[in-house]
Amino acid sequence: MSSSIIELALLAAIAAFVGWRLYTTLGSDNGTPDGRARSEAPQPRPASETRQPQPDSGLRPAFTGPAAAGLEAIHAADPSFNPSEFLQGARSAYEMLAAAFARGDRETLKPWLDTDVYEAWDAAIAEREKTGAEAPQLLRMRHSEIEEARLDGSMARVTVRFEAELGEGDLTRKSEEYWTFMRDTSSEDPNWLLDDVDVAG
């Protein structure tokens, strides 16, 4: 075998070894270094997150219905406010908070509730723990709609009507509640707090 062929074989072996070391150290595009798939579990968003400036698309959201004037005022104070996006976020908040209340998860509830609401929910959880009563479970969201919006100084408040089906033991009942969310439009914190909960009477 000629020396050139031997040199080529050695170079190929070295290249293969280096490539293998890189693969085992860094992993493939779709896995960890040992070849297992990476976890794609979403990371929770912090309770306080600095608002990032958004490019101005030049499009103005549509304000309709009985809350139009209030929504217009909130948008004027905070141009990033979009009623459709807000309603999607409110639905997610309802589902998350209802589930946390059913679990008695005070740690999850506290950052998202105003003081009065938290104290009322905390007392309800404590009473349930004392009596051993079953917690209501959210079975299905039936409908959600913005009912009212207003701007008091820099404080925005938006009320959403939620219709849902709840399960309590073997029983199923309909629930209709008005949740009011608030946010200081002059703050860089983009998160809304649950300020009030009223049951439709």
Rank of each mutant, 00 (worst) to 15 (best):
E177G: 07
E95K: 13
P53N: 12
A76I: 12
L71N: 00
S92M: 15
D116P: 02
W121P: 00
Q88E: 04
A164Q: 02
A126S: 08
P83W: 10
A69Y: 01
D122C: 11
E129C: 05
L171T: 02
A62R: 13
V158S: 02
G70D: 09
G153L: 04
R140G: 03
A98T: 10
K110A: 12
R106D: 14
L71F: 07
Y94D: 04
R157H: 07
T64W: 05
R60S: 01
A133F: 07
A77R: 11
G153Q: 04
I74C: 15
E49H: 11
S57D: 09
G167L: 12
R128D: 04
L138I: 09
A73P: 02
G58H: 02
E119I: 00
S154V: 04
E49P: 01
P55I: 07
R60T: 03
F162W: 00
M96P: 00
A149P: 01
L171I: 07
E177I: 12
D170R: 05
H143D: 06
S80Q: 03
G58V: 01
G89L: 02
E176K: 03
Q137V: 05
A102V: 06
T172A: 07
G167V: 06
I125D: 02
A164I: 01
T64A: 14
R60K: 13
T108D: 13
A102L: 12
P55K: 00
T64L: 14
L113E: 06
A77I: 12
A90S: 09
Q88F: 08
V158Y: 03
A135V: 09
I125L: 04
